[in-house]
Amino acid sequence: MQPEKRSNSESILEVKGLKKYFPVSRKHTVKAVDDVSFEVYEGETLGVVGESGCGKSTMGRAILYLQPPTAGQVTFNGKDLSTLKGRERRKLRKEMQMVFQDPYGSLNPRMTVGAMLGEIVRTHRIVPKHEVANYVRELLVDVGMKPEHADRYPHEFSGGQRQRISIARALAVQPKLIVCDEAVSALDVSVQAQILNLLRKLKQERHLTYLFISHDLSVVKHISDRVIVMYLGKIVEMANKHDLYAQPRHPYTQALLSAIPKMGEEKRERIILKGDVPSPLAVPSGCPFHTRCPIAQKVCAERKPEWHKVGDGHYVACHFA
């Protein structure tokens, strides 16, 4: 949204060579996230798109150390998370929060909204004890709820309202970065628009930075400044959103964009990918996309494509882009 501002702003989060492997048996490991590096600049929204199983959610959790990464470095505001332990890490966690996908599973069903938010506020001593109740009520109003909702249990709310509560929880500790993991995916269109607007408003008011993970390319385009496209645990393309959506370079990005059903458009020629996403247990050699790629050549199965620059801030991993 403000490209000129971004160019001279600092990176708030730096991810370097991040890997997250899950052993499934003695011989096999799922490489859910495989050697991913990128930066998030302060005040921007970095979108992460990809289909199920591409590792985008695992990546979000590894960055927050909810599932500690297998290898790699996560540096937040100059501090390397891997060197921090226990209390120190928890303190840094205060700066990085997460909004989860499932508005039903992500709230403790046996705690009132007020109790849940109050617990977090007290844990981090955000405000003096006697102001906690007030702070919680203001927080609820900030996310578009009513102060008296603090006394209710999660099951008394609709999906959209629960997602507002989830956002309030993330905001409670006054973080700098929020990872939104499919935060609007489970919602109806009209409610989704409400939540997207809320996220936008909060970002401006509180100078937040978002890492916005979603499978929905339209939503990501709407909210992001820059976008990362992931496929089978790897980043295949990264660019500022205008470049990415106007001139996608990676054949996968092109296919993704072509596959979205668009409203009110005449029937058109589309790139329809053949076959399924390969199992993450058996990631194809060379370029992981070569099994479905419409322009794949012999070299694609043999050699991993280089991550190279194709434009201002536009990077792609493809032999032919």
Partner: peptide, 8 residues
């Protein structure tokens, strides 16, 4: 389903 599969 994913978008590419949905398209199929």
């Amino acid at each position: 389903l994913d978008v590419t599969i949905q398209a199929q």
